[in-house]
Computed example of a mutant assay.
Amino acid sequence: MFGFIKRTLKRIYSAITSQLASLFALHNVDESTLEKLERILIEADAGIEVTRPLITTLKDEMARGVLKDGAALRTSLHDKLLALLTKKTFDQHNARVFILVGINGSGKTTAAGKLAHNFAAQGKRVLLAAADTFRAAAGPQLEEWAKRTGASIQPGTEGQDPASVVFQACARFKQENFDILIVDTAGRLQTKTNLMKELEKIGTVIKRHLPDESIATLLTIDSMLGQNSLDQAKLFNESTALNGIILTKLDGTGKGGIIFAIASTLAIPVAFITYGEQLDAIKPFNPSDYVNDLLSE
């Protein structure tokens, strides 16, 4: 990922990486250095809960003479940020069934299409299940993604019980020996009890008909929402067990610190990130690569 932030996530590079570089170049660090670091992290939406304890630890290291210059600051910050992201990690190789959840406008259906491309590029046969039968445009949108990626699709009709679409998809998954099943569900607000029950029903259908498959439920979050993304993730996590997060539209924000807030507060790993309109503008999230790149010169 080296250089990826500078090339592709230009707003994050400008808001975080370039500003940190000036601190890392210092021959001496002091209280004002850490104050600047605190401001950079908070403005990047790393959040108070992440930033304040981190700054407190760095101040202690400075008082003990461990933290003397910018190079030492970079090393210490690197280790602490990486520790936040590796508390819990997502292994995409453990699951073959993916359920995508999220609110309308979070980029969920687009993420489903890009995820299909990600696996198709690995030579895997992908089946998309159009279980969003509430939004009229969702089905045609997913069908277009299926054409673009070479994936197959189990269509649904408007108003159809989403669980029945998933039932049909599970049958095809087994009969036609697909490698990956991606279920696109209806956009839902966390307060919509009926939609949350529908999600439970979909999970039950999959477990009954594909009992040997590991299921990954991924929450799509629009990274441009900043701290609102964290609030959204908290509410969803209370309603359904989340295995990971797809952070979408990361090229459109300078708030790259939200990744640390989500990982630290909820212990939900970021599984994938998306950036831009291109078909291949998705990648599995690698914590080490991200931190290295974020703190690069």
Results as ranks from 00 to 15, higher is better:
F2N: 13
A21P: 03
S22T: 13
A25N: 11
L26V: 08
E31H: 13
L37G: 00
R39S: 15
R39P: 15
L41V: 09
A44H: 01
A44S: 09
R52M: 13
E61A: 13
M62S: 06
M62D: 07
A63W: 02
D69K: 01
D69L: 06
D69N: 12
A71W: 14
L73T: 01
L73G: 06
L81S: 05
L84F: 14
T86Y: 12
K88A: 12
H93E: 13
N94R: 15
V97G: 00
F98Q: 00
I99R: 07
L100T: 09
V101I: 11
I103Q: 06
N104S: 03
N104R: 03
G105S: 05
G107K: 07
T109W: 07
G113H: 07
A116F: 01
N118R: 15
N118W: 15
N118L: 15
F119Y: 09
G123V: 04
G123W: 02
K124D: 04
A138G: 04
E143R: 14
A146L: 01
A146P: 06
T149P: 01
G150L: 07
A151T: 04
E158Y: 14
P162D: 03
P162H: 01
V165I: 12
V165M: 09
V166A: 02
A171D: 14
R172C: 11
Q175D: 15
D179W: 00
G187N: 02
G187A: 06
M196L: 08
T204S: 12
I206E: 01
L219V: 05
D222G: 08
D222R: 05
G226K: 05
F236G: 00
S239Y: 10
N243C: 03
G244S: 03
K249A: 08
G256K: 02
G257P: 06
G257F: 01
I258W: 04
I258M: 00
I259K: 00
I262S: 01
L266N: 03
I268D: 00
L295G: 06
S296P: 06
E297K: 14
